[in-house]
Each structure stands twice: as C-alpha cells, then as structure tokens.
Design a protein around this nucleic acid. Structure first.
Length: 444
RNA sequence: GCACGGGUAGCUCAGUUGGUUAGAGCAGCGGUUUGUGGAACCGAAGGUCGACAGUUCGAGUCUGUCCCCGUGUACCA
C-alpha cells in the first residue's frame, strides 16, 4: 500500500504578519482608550479613511509591472493601481484636499488604523501594524507642533510610563539644511547619505557613524556598508554640530518656548534627529523609550522609536493648489504595546465565566434555566461547550481559569440544590438555587 | 538586498567521526477514577528530519541550489 502524499495548507503566516492574543489585545485596548480620552480632551476630531487608496495618491512612485512600488502592497484594479496605505498621513492629505471647502481650518483630527509596509520585518516591526496619528492641518502656528508633543506625553503617562521612561526628541529640517550650506555639500547623494548616517548616532554611537561618514563601516556580522566619503574637516564640523545641546533654528526655539509655558520639559534637542527625507519642512520629533526591550528569547533588541512626526507644509498642496501647511505625529501602537508589556505587569483581565457542568444532555433545559438566571444577574457564565465527560469538563474549566463550576446532577436536582465548587480553593458547598447568584458573587 | 546563525513530532529541543527500525520533555489522546480540575502513575499514538538535486554500499549528518525563520546591516516616499 502506498501512502498518499497529503497536501497540507501552511499553518505558518506570511512573513511580518502576526496573530495577536487576548493578553496583548487587552493592553492595546487600554492604550486606545487612553488615546481617545486625551484626543477628545485636546479637541481633536475622529476620522477613518479606507485601507486602500489609489497608488498615485499615497506615494509619488508610480507602480511598475510585477511588484509596483517597492515598499507597499499593490494590485491593479480594472486599469488603476490601488495600494494598501503605508501610513495615515498621506490619506489625511488626500482627505483634506478632497474636502477642502467643508472642513474647518485649522483641522485637528486623530485616527487609528492599520497600515501595511512591504519591507523586511524586524524585531517588534511588522508588515501590518496599528498606527495612531494626530495631525493639525491648515496652520503654520507652531503651537500645534508643541501641543502634539505634549499630548503624546500625556498619553504615554496615562499608559503607565514615567517621565524617565521616554524622551521626546526634537530638531528641525532647517537645522540640517543650514549645516549643508555651511559645509558646501551639494550632491544629493552625499546629503542623503550623511543624513542617514547622522540618524544612527544614538544606535551605533559616534565612532561608528564617523566611519559611515567617511569610507564606510563593517557591521557585527561582517557586512560592509559604503560611507558618505566626507573629508576630515567636514566630519569634525558635523561632530561639533551634533553635540550642540541648544537649538539654533528659530522654529525649534519657538517650540521649546511654548513647551516652557506648558511647563513641559521631558524633551531633548537632538541635532542628529533626521527622519524621512522628503516631506518634512520644519520641526521634527521622535519618541524614544529609555528602557531595554527584549525579544521572546530574552535577548535585548534594537527597538528604535515608538513614534515620531513633524511639519509637512507641502503635502496637501500635492493634490492641487491648496495652501495648507500641516504638522502631525504618529505612534506605532503594536510596538508601544510590545514595550509596555515588558515595562509594566498589566493586570488587565476579563472575569472568566462560571461553568455549568453537563451531566446528561437530557437535562439541558434545567442547565439553561440556571444559566439564564445567573446571566441575568450579569455573571459571566457558560454551559460546558464541549462533549467530554466530567473529568474533561473540569480540565476545561481549569484551563480557561473559570472561578467556579456548578454541579446540577441527579442528586442535586432531587434536593433542589446546586453544588458550587470554588476552583481556586477546591471548596464545595451545597446551596439553594435562590442563593446561587449571591454565592457566586462572593467567589468572583 | 547584503552578512551571520538556524529549520528534526502540535511546542521546546537532543541526535557522536555518515551506519540497522530517528529520540526526550511538554502538550494532546486513552486508562488508574463511567459525579470532580490544578499532583502522581501506566499505556498507546504522533515524523515527506524545510525542498530538490548530488556524493556514497549507505545521508537527519557531507556538497550544491532554492525556500522559510531569527539577528545584524541597508532601504523605508
């Protein structure tokens, strides 16, 4: 007899996609409820936009044949390319342009939504993740930028982080622009290489970044990265600038002044902060966590920031002739939750159901009567949902951490009683049916 | 993309210089207990050893190619 080859579907998930279990979801819900509370308090409107947008609306790269727009997930619908959004900022710009005449200006909105990136996943970085965005469009007022940082800080502290656990870093695109003017670095390639190198100061340290600014650097695994080929005096000047602790550009100075009025001081001017190249035009921010994050194997991993943002005065204008400066900030919620769960031992738990044992299906009517009675008293409860024997039922109750089980078998029915077993202590008591909800409430 | 490490049962892993029929723990299943979980004991079951090709009398083990996972690095509008 020949064994037939079984064709099994894969139980693995596509790279970068994750199942999320209750424990994590409850913490996430907690974070989200804090976010909503703070956003309402700060006067922001709630918005939702679809997962898909026309590819041309969310990125300036037009799709090519096979895998259009590296970095995003796309497909051709009829004759148009559509893509899963990779952030919430581009859809907001599109929304604002579309509803330009109707919306208030300034327009303050917040949004929670999944975004997708077709990139190599890393520790705590997925290809599908939940993002939270708060933006203020239609004004150049730097009060908006400052308030975004303050609101993020309030959210983080509501979630249980202390001041020392996180820092909001701030800098400005104008700061780096000035440096390049002074150094007479004009080659686009060199500028972008330099910016990206500077962005790594915190992670790699100045010694390593120096190599990246010069000839290049070998990483831990022995892989070589080509450098920006700056000369020594240029590197030295950069080093001096990078160690500035006081902001020099007007926009950052003004934002920090506003911080003072709010008595907010958990920020740091960080000249090495750069963030995405193209669309930022003014102050930029990043939210860094100041504690170690480990992976499932207990190794400390390079976690990076949990969020960031900045001013993007020209984005909306891409959709037509709209004079619409804007600023915004976003948080990677899954990453934040991942880190939060390690920092704090969250005891967010649902009350598990009381379970009624099934002795004989013939008596299901009786069991349901009891179930209805305790459910109407708002006690989480269920009749054993499986088919096993009593032992099986008890194992199930134990596994789902049911606080107690109800025995209502022939003996109990005869005496018009119910036997209640406390699964934490193992105690069993016979009680009258009318006392049942009271007794259960004592145990829960 | 590049570099390093890994892929053996549902999960975590062991598997000697290539050598009969590939092991363990946990979980699951059955039983000791047909009305009692979290403990114990007993039993049975569970595998295209990531895929394909090659070397060999013989490959989980060696070689090549590819796929997937992890970490670092790069990219990230």
């Amino acid at each position: 007899m020949e064994k037939q080859k079984k064709i099994k579907p894969l139980k693995e998930l596509p790279s970068g996609f994750e199942d999320r279990q209750e424990k994590e979801l409850l913490v996430r819900d907690f974070v989200i409820s804090n976010i909503k509370e703070v956003m309402i308090k700060y006067g922001f409107q709630y918005l939702e936009t679809p997962s898909f947008e026309y590819t041309e609306s969310i990125g300036k790269y037009l799709p090519d044949k096979e895998r259009p727009g590296e970095g995003i997930f796309s497909f051709k619908d009829e004759n148009k390319w559509v893509s899963l959004r990779y952030d919430l900022t581009a859809p907001l710009a599109r929304y604002v342009a579309k509803n330009f005449n109707e919306i208030s200006k300034p327009f303050k909105r917040y949004q929670l939504g999944r975004v997708w990136r077709n990139e190599k996943p890393g520790p705590g970085r997925y290809r599908e993740f939940l993002q939270f965005d708060a933006d203020c469009v239609g004004t150049k007022n730097l009060q908006a930028d400052a308030e975004l940082c303050i609101l993020i800080s309030e959210i983080l502290e509501k979630c249980g982080l202390e001041k020392k656990d996180y820092t909001i870093k701030i800098s400005s695109r104008n700061f780096t622009n000035e440096i390049f003017n002074k150094l007479k670095i004009t080659s686009k390639e060199q500028i972008s290489m330099t910016i990206r190198s500077l962005d790594k100061v915190k992670r790699l340290g100045w010694t390593e970044v120096k190599k990246l600014l010069g000839k290049g650097r070998k990483d831990k695994s022995g892989d070589f990265t080509k450098g920006a080929e700056l000369n020594e005096s240029q590197i030295n000047y950069l080093e001096k600038k990078i160690n500035e602790t006081k902001p020099e550009t007007d926009d950052v100075i003004e934002v920090t002044k506003i911080f003072d009025f709010y008595e907010f001081d958990n920020y740091e001017f960080d000249p090495s902060l750069v963030r995405g190249l193209e669309y930022y035009t003014g102050p930029i921010f990043e939210i860094d966590l100041n504690f170690d994050v480990k992976n499932s194997k207990g190794q400390i991993i390079q976690f990076g920031s949990v969020g960031g943002g900045g001013r993007y005065d020209n984005l909306v204008n891409n959709f037509g002739n709209f004079e619409c400066p804007a600023t915004g900030i976003s948080i990677g919620l899954d990453r934040l939750v991942y880190a939060l769960m390690q920092k704090k031992d969250f005891k967010i738990e649902t009350v598990k159901p009381v379970m009624i044992c099934v002795f004989d299906k013939k008596n299901m009517g009786e069991y349901i009567k009891i179930l209805k009675k305790i459910r109407s008293a708002n006690i989480n409860s269920e009749i054993y949902p499986g088919e096993g024997k009593l032992k099986k039922q008890m194992e199930y109750a134990n596994k789902i951490q049911s606080p107690c089980v109800i025995f209502y078998g022939d003996d109990e029915v005869k005496n018009k009683e119910v036997k209640l077993r406390n699964l934490k202590t193992g105690d069993e008591t016979l009680i009258k049916i009318e006392d049942l909800t009271n007794e259960i409430n004592k145990i829960i």
